[in-house]
């Protein structure tokens, strides 16, 4: 069942209540029009429903979300997919800062750029493995303190500075794949840089394939030499920092 909500002038509390009642009423595809700044859309929601957002949703879109498929036609603001557990967020535009903070699972596809601190503190356990695929570039601190999961930065415009400074600092799990030339960006990266293996191409192709399907943009099949991979410096990055008194 499909339904629509006009979000014009609605406070987030009202809008989110309407979304929940729509879902409870059996809506499987919910279209939100004229969204502009309403926070917490999809907050802690569970299920397989689809939400399509036209406009600019407010901060903490899909926060604690546990399922659902959200598509945004427009940019999203800060805190997107904050501590998200499961589900998919597809953004036809760019994301603000702190995308996917503490994300535990699910997938995020951003057509254009992400702001500062994307994928900070992403986690991973068993089958729960968060994925972020970014079409453009990223701001500083990408993947900081990353403990698991996957970030793929496609750099479709081929920018030389698609990475920000301090990428991967404190990283101790997961991986960041970047398409582009390593040499110009090496000093921005605060974790270990390793070449991409042929065996990894299949997984990359899987997620890049989805990206292409969502946005109709395709960097082509993965050739490992076009990418480099950033991984943590070990499971215990600060092991030697301390000495017990």
């Amino acid at each position: 069942m499909e339904s629509r909500i006009d979000a014009t002038g609605k406070h987030y509390k009202t809008l989110n209540q309407e979304i929940i009642s729509g879902m409870n009423g059996g809506t499987t595809k919910l279209i939100l029009d004229n969204v502009n700044g309403q926070r917490y859309i999809g907050d802690a929601l569970e299920g397989n429903q689809e939400i399509i957002i036209h406009g600019v949703p407010g901060n903490d879109l899909a926060v604690f979300m546990n399922g659902l498929h959200i598509t945004v036609y427009g940019n999203i603001q800060d805190g997107g997919a904050n501590t998200m557990n499961e589900g998919t967020l597809v953004v036809h535009g760019s994301a603000g800062d702190t995308l996917g903070y503490g994300m535990r699972g699910g997938e995020i596809y951003i057509r254009d750029d992400v702001g500062y601190r994307a994928g900070i503190h992403m986690k991973e356990y068993g089958d729960d493995r968060p994925i972020i695929v970014i079409g453009g570039g990223a701001g500083n601190f990408l993947g900081e303190y990353m403990a698991g999961g996957l970030i793929i930065l496609l750099n479709l415009e081929g920018r030389e500075n698609c990475l920000g400074n301090y990428t991967g600092s404190g990283m101790h799990g997961g991986a960041i794949y970047v398409r582009g030339d390593i040499e110009k960006q090496r000093k921005k990266i605060k974790a270990r840089i390793v070449p991409v293996q042929n065996a990894e191409a299949e997984e990359l192709n899987h997620y890049i394939g989805r990206f292409s399907k969502y946005f109709d943009r395709n960097p082509g099949p993965v050739r490992p030499e076009e990418y480099f991979k950033i991984v943590g410096t070990g499971a215990r990055p600060y092991k030697k920092l301390y000495v017990g008194v």
Binding site: D60, D78, G79, N82, T98, Y101, R104, R117, I120, H121, K123, E124, Y125, G126, D128, E144, Y145, A147, G148, G170, H172, G173, A235, R236, P237, Y238, K239
Partner: peptide, 21 residues
């Protein structure tokens, strides 16, 4: 601990000074 925290076995569990949001 790893299962409860949803982090890999044996990896440091790091809580940074600020919440990044």
């Amino acid at each position: 601990v790893s299962r409860t925290r949803r982090i890999p076995y044996g990896s440091d569990a790091i809580s940074p000074a600020p919440h990044h949001d």
